[in-house]
């Protein structure tokens, strides 16, 4: 298991709380809360070590579309970058519903 932490600049607008996913094989769980500062903090616990740059890239791509200030926690059980992007998108839909 590897634990990663990233910090990104964010918009003034705050994200809304949302939860999605399951820590099952090839899948992941995401918890999103509004952040108290104007930044987005991401903490990732992943079963697959050595993919820090991939995680950073996937999150940057996501945050370019959704810059709201958030604390994002991810519990990952070997999801592909495509699955990660899909779950992040679903999480936004959940946060808006």
């Amino acid at each position: 298991m590897e634990i990663l932490a990233f910090e990104f600049p964010a918009a003034a607008e705050k994200a809304r709380r949302a939860h999605i996913g399951v820590v099952g094989s090839g899948d992941l769980e995401i918890l999103m809360d509004p952040s108290t500062d104007a930044k987005t903090h991401a903490k990732i616990q992943t079963s697959v070590a050595g993919f820090a740059t991939t995680w950073k890239a996937v999150l940057e791509r996501f945050l370019a579309q959704h810059p709201e200030a958030a604390n994002i926690e991810i519990n990952d059980f070997g999801a592909t970058p495509g699955t990660v992007a899909l779950r992040l998108q679903q999480m936004v839909e959940v946060s808006r519903s």
């Binding site: 298991m1 399951v22 820590v23 616990q45 992943t46 079963s47 926690e73």
Partner: peptide, 9 residues
């Protein structure tokens, strides 16, 4: 986590 296994919230 202390056994290196990812937990679920």
């Amino acid at each position: 986590p202390i056994q290196g296994i990812v937990p679920q919230a």
